[in-house]
Measured scan of single mutants.
Amino acid sequence: DIIVVALYDYEAIHHEDLSFQKGDQMVVLEESGEWWKARSLATRKEGYIPSNYVARVDS
């Protein structure tokens, strides 16, 4: 799995977006363009995230 960590807070604009806080970790489910589908490890919610707001966690 690709794990990313939030670099900034993000408040969902559309209902399919995923809100998150700086430091939150998410599993990337699908990478396509600038918006990635991800699942929050904390809340288990899924939605689209702006890929420029996150960084990959080296395992």
Rank of each mutant, 00 (worst) to 15 (best):
D1P: 14
D24E: 15
I13D: 08
N52R: 12
I13K: 13
A42S: 12
R39P: 01
Y8H: 09
V27G: 03
S32W: 12
Q25H: 15
G33K: 05
S40N: 13
L41D: 04
F20Q: 00
E46F: 07
V4S: 02
Q21N: 11
Y48R: 11
Q25C: 14
I3M: 08
W35I: 08
S40Q: 10
D58S: 12
V28S: 01
G47A: 01
G47P: 00
F20S: 00
I49L: 04
D58F: 09
W36V: 09
G23F: 05
Y8R: 14
A12Q: 05
A6S: 03
I3G: 02
A12S: 08
A55K: 13
E34L: 14
R44L: 15
V57D: 07
Q25D: 03
K45C: 12
L7N: 03
P50I: 03
Y8T: 07
Q21V: 11
A38D: 01
A42D: 10
V27T: 07
L41W: 04
I49N: 01
Y53T: 04
E11V: 15
D9C: 07
D17G: 15
N52E: 10
Y53M: 13
N52Y: 10
Y53D: 03
E16H: 15
K37R: 14
W36I: 12
A55Q: 13
A12I: 03
D9F: 04
G33E: 06
V27F: 08
E16Y: 14
Q21Y: 09
I49C: 02
F20Y: 01
E11C: 12
W35T: 07
K37D: 01
I49F: 05
E16G: 15
S32K: 14
H15V: 14
W35E: 04
K22F: 06
A38C: 12
D58W: 07
N52G: 12
L18M: 09
V28P: 01
F20T: 01
I49K: 00
E30R: 08
L7M: 08
V4W: 13
D24V: 04
H14L: 07
V27N: 04
V54G: 01
E46A: 07
G23V: 01
V28I: 14
A6M: 04
P50M: 07
G23A: 03
T43Y: 04
K22N: 04
L18I: 08
I3F: 08
D17H: 15
Y10S: 02
R44S: 14
L18K: 00
Y48W: 15
S51I: 08
I2A: 08
